[in-house]
Write a protein that binds this DNA or RNA. Structure first.
Length: 287
DNA sequence: CCAGACGTTGTT
DNA sequence: GTCTGG
DNA sequence: CCAGACGTTGTT
DNA sequence: GTCTGG
């Protein structure tokens, strides 16, 4: 699935990569985008007689809430939508035809089960390049038509061979050449659209372990994308083991001393020392 | 017809 | 255990 | 996705 | 709003 991602490239890079003419948003680098947060999405305007279709960058809350829902609190926002079943699901069917978007990213996180723990891993496409995740969006409006909130969801597909050892699903990353068709307001052929949603090319994906910093959705620093320092980790592990062995040896030494003492006591007394709870008991026993 | 859901992921 | 917030 | 809360009353 | 289940 896709439950966290990164979009740390700057304005200029994003605009150039996705062919955006004008942008009115302030974009700070994001190293840990979490559900419910505002994210940039690429939408294409509908062409009119006067104006050709243009791509615009808008903001959208991650977690799709259908247009028919009055109170967003009554429903669980959908952060993902299965690509395979978009046409069957009433929640997404309409959006598939009318409200497709690109969700720009430069990495996504998955958590790998390692024993009882879950280790975060960051995946990249072509060594950290910008890519587009296929998304759908909804716009809830007042009865007067005023926009209340725009929400979006990231489409998922089966994981490719690079991702599947970590997780069974991955975001639907569009081939750059397919982005235009996905955005097009003209294309209404569902088969054609669904055919664009595939596990990405294995060779283009690479990944590396990151620290647990990313676990907390409040973290949003470059530390979230820093590779785990394996040498430092090994050193820390070694230090821990050394301390453990040291403590173990110290404990063994103490136990040995104690044993020697109680052996001495046993030699000078018929009754084990442990049996006496108080001086009174000791006296009673002797009488 | 009306009522009630509308969804994904991971885990058991 | 399950829900909410980020 | 993970982390962290999970609640009420009355008072400030 | 629209579909599914009863």
């Amino acid at each position: 699935m896709c439950g966290r991602y990164t979009i740390a490239h700057n304005h200029k890079e994003i605009m150039e990569r996705f062919g955006i003419e004008q942008m009115f948003l302030e974009l700070d680098p994001r190293y840990n985008v979490a559900p419910s947060q505002m994210v940039p999405v690429v939408i294409e305007t509908k062409a009119t007689d006067d104006m050709p279709a243009v791509r615009v960058l808008e903001t959208s809350k991650w977690g799709l809430v259908p247009g028919f829902v009055q109170d967003a609190k009554l429903i669980k926002p959908m952060i993902n939508a299965r690509g395979e079943t978009l046409l069957e699901k009433r929640m997404f069917k309409n959006a598939l035809f009318k409200r497709r978007c690109l969700i720009p990213a430069d990495g996504f996180f998955e958590w790998m089960a390692v024993g009882k723990k879950r280790q975060p891993v960051r995946f990249q496409v072509t060594d950290g390049a910008l890519f587009a995740m296929a998304g759908l969006y909804e716009e809830r409006t007042t009865p007067e038509g005023e926009l209340i909130e725009r929400t979006c969801t990231i489409i998922t597909v089966a994981a490719n061979e690079k991702v599947s050892p970590v997780h069974s699903r991955m975001p639907a990353i569009l081939k750059p050449d397919d982005e235009a068709l996905w955005l097009s307001k003209e294309c209404g052929d569902p088969e054609k659209l669904l055919s664009l949603l595939n596990p990405y090319d294995n060779d283009a994906i690479n990944f590396y372990r990151v620290s647990a910093t990313v676990n907390n959705a409040r973290s949003d620093s470059a530390e979230c994308i820093a590779p785990v320092d394996l040498e430092a980790e090994a050193a820390a592990e070694a230090a821990t083991m050394a301390a453990f062995e040291e403590a173990k040896a110290a404990r063994a030494a103490k136990t040995a001393t104690r044993r020697a003492k109680s052996t001495k006591v046993a030699e000078t007394s018929d009754v084990p020392e442990q049996a006496y709870l108080s001086d009174e008991l000791r006296e009673l026993n002797q009488n």
